[in-house]
């Protein structure tokens, strides 16, 4: 169910997004939402597993930072409120179809090549398959253009791991905010 603008912004200004944990609404960051097993609004569990596993291969740490819940929260708001990088890339909104298409393609590719979903691949197999996808020319890829999918998911992972004040701290780079980015969650 999409969040309305007022509800979204209310949570956003307090530094969190409205998730539901055990049927109880709670304002949580994506990292907290992941840790507490918050319900997903838009992505299916299978889609979340595939996207999380892929994001973790692209940039280790993305899973723990709550990539699936971040994507789910941003896909659950009006596209005009979305914070996703794909907004810049002239892909028609809404973008749910793009992400579900990538998740489906990941699992289908892994299933064909390794007889299991992407999230169940060994670390080496997942890394190798990510390299194939990054190359863009994948004969048995059935989803949004593979190279583009790599670019977008990788950018989402970088946003989450390095695009927020904690990420700057990890790089020993001063954040120097005029206004702290609470809304990013």
């Amino acid at each position: 169910m999409p969040l309305d603008r007022r509800t979204f912004l209310k949570g956003a200004t307090s530094g969190a997004v409205l998730f539901t944990v055990g049927g109880v609404p709670a304002w949580l960051t994506p990292r907290e939402a992941r840790a507490e097993g918050a319900d997903l609004r838009t992505l299916t569990p299978a889609q979340a597993r595939a996207l999380t596993a892929y994001g973790e291969v692209l940039l280790p740490g993305a899973d723990e930072a709550g990539l699936a819940h971040y994507l789910d929260a941003q896909l659950s708001v009006d596209p005009a409120e979305s914070l996703l990088m794909i907004r810049y890339l002239d892909v028609p909104a809404p973008w749910n179809g793009f992400y579900s298409g990538v998740a489906h393609a990941l699992d289908a590719l892994a299933q064909r090549r390794h007889d299991c979903p992407f999230a169940e691949l060994s670390a080496d197999a997942a890394h190798d398959l990510a390299g194939v996808i990054a190359g863009g020319e994948v004969a048995d890829w059935a989803g949004p253009p593979a190279g583009f999918a790599h670019f977008v998911l990788r950018a989402d992972a970088v946003d989450l791991v390095y695009g927020r004040p904690e990420g700057f701290d990890a790089l020993n780079v001063p954040y120097m905010a005029h206004i702290d980015p609470e809304a990013v969650a």
């Binding site: 810049y88 946003d159 695009g163 990013v184």
Partner: peptide, 14 residues
């Protein structure tokens, strides 16, 4: 105008 390249996306066409 929050200081964030993630936040900056809301300033783009919607």
């Amino acid at each position: 105008l929050q200081s964030s390249l993630i936040w900056a996306r809301r300033l783009r066409w919607g």
